[in-house]
Simulated assay, not measured.
Amino acid sequence: MSKAFTRESDDAPDNDEDGDAALPPLPAGSKNYMTRAGYDRMRAELFSLIDDERPKIVEIVHWAASNGDRSENGDYLYGKKRLREIDRRIRFLTRRMEIAEVVDSSVHAGSDQVFFGATVGYEDPEGVEHRVTILGIDEADSARQQVSWVSPIARALLKSRVGDVVKLATPAGVREIEIVSVDYRSPA
């Protein structure tokens, strides 16, 4: 049998058509909450891929294909691979934006209760103060102290108020944390 008609690996897991299995999933039946800034960044990325990057790669692939033998043509092979990556990302962004629900957290300005978009200061049992901003799944960045609204810390904090002590389930056990501040300024 020709190798061209066999699967590379019969043991490979079946991923969805776009290979998004490694991307953060949305909880079943939930909406894709995000801030206006997060939605605008996602939209800008989508239009950049569609209007700038994809046409450049298509041009490179077209030029490389016109050079003849495609089997050993690095520009052609890399270009086709990059096109697949771009198309996969475009499909992902389009799907996520279609189900996005933009939340204006500024309506809660001045409130001491934690809702989506809040920057929350909390104190752990050792007395160390931490600050996290609760954002959407696609916009949270842990390096910037931003957490997804579905994360354990966000779920523990949501709907609590300044002064409340909430229980946070961690791998090391349940910890009690105290909310010390709530702010609704837009994340940087």
Rank of each mutant, 00 (worst) to 15 (best):
K159E: 11
R95C: 02
V147N: 04
A140P: 05
R7C: 07
D75W: 11
N32V: 00
Y76T: 02
R84S: 08
R84I: 00
L83P: 07
G173D: 03
P152Y: 02
S30D: 14
V165G: 02
S71W: 06
G163Q: 11
R54D: 00
A169D: 14
A4E: 10
H130P: 03
G74L: 14
R91F: 04
T133V: 08
E59S: 15
M97A: 03
R84F: 03
E98L: 07
V103R: 07
P187N: 05
G74C: 04
R161G: 01
T35R: 05
V61W: 09
M34Y: 09
L26R: 15
R36E: 12
A22H: 15
A28H: 11
A172F: 11
V162D: 03
L46V: 09
P152K: 09
F5C: 01
A21L: 02
S148N: 06
Y78R: 12
A28K: 15
V114S: 04
R89H: 01
N67T: 14
H108S: 07
V166D: 08
D124H: 07
N67K: 15
V132K: 05
A65I: 01
E101H: 14
G68Q: 06
D141C: 06
D112I: 01
F5P: 00
E53W: 07
Y184S: 00
I137G: 08
V102D: 00
G29Y: 11
R43T: 11
I86K: 11
V120T: 05
D18T: 09
D20P: 00
A169P: 12
R144P: 00
S148R: 04
A109W: 02
S30A: 15
G136Y: 00
K3R: 14
D40R: 14
P25E: 09
V107S: 05
G68Y: 10
Y33I: 03
F115T: 13
P152E: 02
K3N: 14
F47L: 05
Q146F: 03
I60K: 15
S48V: 01
S160T: 14
K3W: 04
E176Y: 08
P125W: 06
R70P: 01
E176H: 13
A140E: 06
E53N: 06
L157Q: 04
E72C: 05
D112G: 09
S148G: 07
Y122I: 02
S2N: 11
V174H: 02
V166G: 11
K80F: 01
D138C: 03
T6Q: 13
E17D: 11
R175D: 03
V102F: 02
E178G: 03
I177S: 07
V150N: 11
